[in-house]
Simulated assay, not measured.
Amino acid sequence: MSQKFQEIINSDRPVLIDFFATWCQPCKVQSSVLNTVKENIGEGARIIKVDVDQYPALAAQYGVRGVPTLAIFKDG
Rank of each mutant, 00 (worst) to 15 (best):
D51N: 13
G63H: 14
Y55C: 03
M1D: 08
S32C: 05
A59F: 03
L58P: 01
C27G: 01
G76L: 06
V50K: 04
Q6I: 01
G76C: 05
K4W: 04
T36R: 14
Q61W: 02
D12V: 05
A45D: 02
C27R: 01
A45R: 11
Q61Y: 06
Y55I: 01
D18N: 12
D53F: 09
A45G: 05
D18I: 02
K74I: 12
G42D: 04
V37M: 10
R13D: 03
I41K: 07
I8Q: 03
K28P: 00
Q3F: 07
S31W: 14
Y62R: 01
G44W: 10
S31Q: 15
R65S: 13
I47D: 08
G44P: 04
I41L: 11
I8E: 01
K4S: 15
I9V: 15
D18T: 05
Q6F: 02
G63R: 14
P68M: 06
E43D: 13
I41V: 15
V64G: 04
Q6A: 08
K38I: 03
D53G: 11
G42S: 08
V37A: 10
V29R: 12
V15K: 03
N35Q: 15
N10F: 05
G63Y: 05
E7N: 06
M1V: 10
T69P: 03
Q6S: 10
C27K: 08
G66C: 12
